[in-house]
Amino acid sequence: MKMSLTFLFRTVTKDFVKGNVCQHVQSLHMGCQLLAADKVLLMKLRKSTGYTFINCKKALEKFDNDITQAETWLHEQAQKEGWSKANKLEGRKAKEGLIGLFVGENAAVMVEVNCETDFVARNEKFQQLVKDVTFATLAHHRSKTQSQEGYVKSALAGDELSKLRMGEGASLADQVALTIGRLGENMSVKRAVTVGVPAEWHIGSYVHGTVSGQTEVAMGRYGALVIFQGGKEEEWDTLGRKLGQHIVGEAPLSLGNMDDLPCGESETRLLPQTFLADPSRTVAQFLRGQQARVLDFVRFQCGEKVGEEVE
């Protein structure tokens, strides 16, 4: 027994000196590192793409933990599946969704993107789609109006919007299909309007039912853009917001004239309407007090029926 223990000790020592044990330990250590790296890559891939654990794991295994190739493959697969799912869901009604609104320097854009349920409208991936549509539309507006001066207003229907591209990347139609593939509901880009104003004009805006956590693009069930002139510089934001609130709340159909008389509760012209923020005055009377005038406005309500063209 004593000789066996001695022999075993010498054998282990010999192996250790030769580096065999070191190699075994090193191999085990590297294996642990690899497993840890897999987990880190998996979590990173899931966070960046939003795809399921199983699909991300499959992608990493397919490309030997190359996260770039794995992400590209996932997008391609999701897009294929998204187009297939989009075709299957095409007939299903999509009346929910969000209005997206962004006001920049002398330009603004308002879009409507639809889905089937309010639950999906609250999903961050759907909200990212709304943001993508908003900025793709704004980029299109700026590229088309670089040489134009004065007031520029344009409307785009869904088929026109679908052809727009996100920078140098995918079209909005591809992005919609990708989001359908991720969330499993029918979706559509319904309409958009863009405005560009000269330096002395101002753009007011308001979104009702705002989605919390959004900063760059305001999102909600209702939205309004109002183009106005005059007023005190320090009050432009407040003035634009109050006018936008009124337009959302009272839903005027036309502008009217500053001297128009109200025609009762069914008044659909903006200027003769009773001002929402001060019922003792009409909108026209409020504007006179502010030494301002409204030049144009646009109102979107999510899911409302509109003609083939956005007015």
Results as ranks from 00 to 15, higher is better:
8 L>R: 12
8 L>G: 06
9 F>K: 15
9 F>A: 14
14 K>Y: 15
22 C>K: 14
22 C>Q: 15
24 H>T: 15
24 H>K: 15
28 L>T: 13
28 L>C: 12
37 A>P: 01
39 K>N: 12
41 L>H: 01
48 S>D: 09
50 G>I: 01
51 Y>G: 00
52 T>E: 05
53 F>S: 05
54 I>Y: 10
59 A>E: 01
61 E>G: 07
62 K>N: 12
68 T>V: 14
70 A>E: 02
70 A>N: 04
72 T>D: 14
73 W>D: 00
75 H>P: 00
77 Q>A: 05
78 A>C: 13
81 E>G: 09
81 E>Q: 12
83 W>D: 05
85 K>C: 02
87 N>H: 09
87 N>K: 12
87 N>W: 04
88 K>I: 06
97 G>F: 03
97 G>Q: 02
97 G>L: 03
100 G>W: 04
101 L>C: 08
101 L>G: 00
106 N>M: 15
109 V>R: 00
111 V>W: 03
112 E>H: 01
119 F>A: 12
119 F>L: 11
120 V>R: 12
126 F>P: 05
128 Q>M: 11
131 K>E: 11
131 K>W: 06
132 D>I: 05
136 A>F: 07
137 T>D: 10
138 L>N: 02
141 H>I: 00
143 S>V: 09
143 S>G: 14
146 Q>C: 09
156 L>E: 09
156 L>H: 09
156 L>V: 08
157 A>Y: 07
157 A>R: 15
164 L>T: 05
169 G>I: 12
169 G>D: 11
170 A>K: 15
171 S>K: 14
172 L>E: 11
173 A>R: 14
175 Q>I: 14
179 T>V: 11
183 L>Q: 05
192 A>C: 05
192 A>R: 01
199 A>R: 11
200 E>S: 14
201 W>M: 14
203 I>F: 03
204 G>S: 04
205 S>W: 04
205 S>K: 12
206 Y>R: 00
206 Y>D: 00
210 T>R: 13
211 V>S: 08
214 Q>N: 11
215 T>M: 10
215 T>R: 11
216 E>H: 10
218 A>D: 05
220 G>N: 05
221 R>G: 04
222 Y>K: 10
224 A>N: 03
224 A>E: 02
230 G>K: 07
232 K>H: 11
232 K>G: 10
232 K>Y: 10
233 E>Y: 09
233 E>C: 05
235 E>Y: 10
236 W>S: 11
237 D>A: 15
241 R>N: 06
241 R>P: 00
242 K>I: 07
247 I>T: 03
247 I>M: 03
253 L>P: 01
253 L>R: 10
255 L>M: 05
256 G>Q: 04
261 L>C: 10
263 C>N: 15
265 E>Q: 12
265 E>A: 13
266 S>Q: 15
269 R>A: 12
269 R>G: 04
272 P>G: 06
272 P>C: 08
273 Q>W: 06
273 Q>F: 06
275 F>G: 05
275 F>R: 04
277 A>L: 15
279 P>C: 08
281 R>Q: 15
283 V>P: 04
285 Q>G: 07
285 Q>I: 06
286 F>H: 10
287 L>S: 02
289 G>Y: 02
289 G>I: 02
290 Q>T: 02
291 Q>R: 13
294 V>M: 01
294 V>T: 04
297 F>M: 01
300 F>G: 00
306 V>H: 03
307 G>W: 02
311 E>D: 10
